[in-house]
Each structure stands twice: as C-alpha cells, then as structure tokens.
C-alpha cells in the first residue's frame, strides 16, 4: 500500500458519502444518473465477489463489502425511496452500447480465460465507462448542484490517484497491470472536461454551468 492508492481509496469512500449526503439532505436524487449507479453495482458485484473465495487483507475485505453494500443501497434509494425525484427522460444514455463492447473486450483481454478472470476484466472495462451516462446527463442539463459536482470530483480523483500508484508500483515492485492501467487512463481522461469546469467554476465559488 502506498499513499497514492490509500488516498485514491479514501477519495472513493468520500465520494459515496458525499452522494449519500446529497440524497439525504436534498431528499432527492435529482441530477444523479440511475444508469451510472446501476453500472457501479454491476462493477462492484462482479469484481468484489471474490471476497467469497479470496482473502487479501482486512482492509481489502472491508472496502469491498462497503462498496458492494453502498452501491446497492444507493440504487435502492433511487429506485424506491426517492423514486419520484428521478427523471428517466434525461437519463437517456444507451447503456447497451457500453456493456456489449466491454464484454467483448473482457473476452479478448484477460489474465486467464476463466469465468472469474473474465468477469474481473469486464468489471474493469465497465468501470472505466460507467460514468458516461452521468456525464451525458450533465451535458444535457448543462448545470449541476454543487454537491453533485463534489461527488463527481471525488470519484474522478479516485482513479486519477491510482495512476501515480501504478507508476510507483512499477518502480518499487516491478509489476504492471496493463488491463487496469489502460482502463484507468481512459477512465481518468473522461473526467478531463469535467475537472476543467469544476476547477474554473465550483472551486472559485461559482455555480457549475457548462457553456451552451
């Protein structure tokens, strides 16, 4: 464990708490893409189900349980408790265009052609693109609540911090995980535009608004 990864994971944790806080305080899931949240459930369940047969560490176990449970809980909040506050008419990204190609990529690029390893690859590829419905929705509405942008910033920072972690591990341990690295770079790049607007508006105390 190095500090980049630790802060990356903490940033991921923070993003979940920010999202829960946003839903609870505004009593609404307005501005949050259900499709993105559903993809995260698929990502975490497919990747972290290995807690059932693989023991890495207490840290690893607790985090995995947390991410599976919290993503499911958020989906429950959106689908049941705050259902009327979710507007499917602006959450229109075609998720099937992501899942198909990701499944194909997972079948081609994996470390072993077994069910669980292909599933792991799929979760990595899917995670890198899971934010797209959310960013698409943001693009459509052209603005976002400040708390929602903090959620996205924390989520984006998580994978961005994994990049120096991989560089560090390459030099200190001599290992490289090309599948995770490639997908991680793509995932981080997708946030570039968001981060630009975030730093030039929200951090300066202005409202997050995309140019028309």
């Amino acid at each position: 464990m190095n500090l980049f990864r630790l802060f990356g994971d903490l940033s991921h944790l923070a993003s979940i708490f920010i999202l829960l806080h946003k839903i609870r305080t505004t009593r609404s899931c307005r501005g949050i893409s259900f499709k993105t949240q559903a993809l995260y459930v698929a990502v975490f369940v497919s990747r972290y189900l290995d807690i059932l047969w693989e023991w890495v560490s207490l840290y690893n176990f607790v985090m995995k349980v947390f991410f599976i449970a919290s993503s499911c809980f958020i989906l429950y909040l959106m689908k049941m408790k705050y259902r009327p506050t979710h507007d499917p008419s602006i959450d229109t990204f075609r998720v099937e265009f992501l899942v198909g190609p990701c499944a194909l990529l997972a079948l081609i690029f994996n470390y072993k052609f077994t069910f669980t390893e292909v599933l792991w690859s799929l979760s990595i590829f899917l995670e890198s693109l899971a934010i797209l419905p959310q960013l698409f929705m943001l693009q459509r509405t052209g603005e976002a609540e400040t708390i929602t942008t903090h959620y996205l910033a924390a989520l984006g920072a998580y994978r961005a911090l994994y990049i120096p972690n991989w560089i560090y591990r390459y030099f200190s341990e001599g290992v490289v995980d090309p599948i995770a690295v490639t997908a991680g770079l793509v995932q981080t790049a997708l946030y570039a535009d968001f981060f630009y607007v975030y730093f030039t508006t929200v951090i300066q105390g202005q409202k997050f608004e995309l140019p028309a």
């Binding site: 464990m1 990864r5 994971d9 991921h12 972290y48 693989e54 890495v56 560490s57 690893n60 985090m63 995995k64 991410f67 470390y111 390893e117 792991w120 994994y162 591990r169 390459y170 341990e173 001599g174 290992v175 490289v176 995980d177 090309p178 599948i179 995770a180």
Partner: peptide, 10 residues
C-alpha cells in the same frame, strides 16, 4: 516488469 493483475487493488 511482470504483467499481472494486482489482487490487492480495489
């Protein structure tokens, strides 16, 4: 370096 999946990463 070796190409492998980092099992300890989240």
């Amino acid at each position: 370096g070796d190409a492998a999946r980092a099992k300890d990463e989240l």
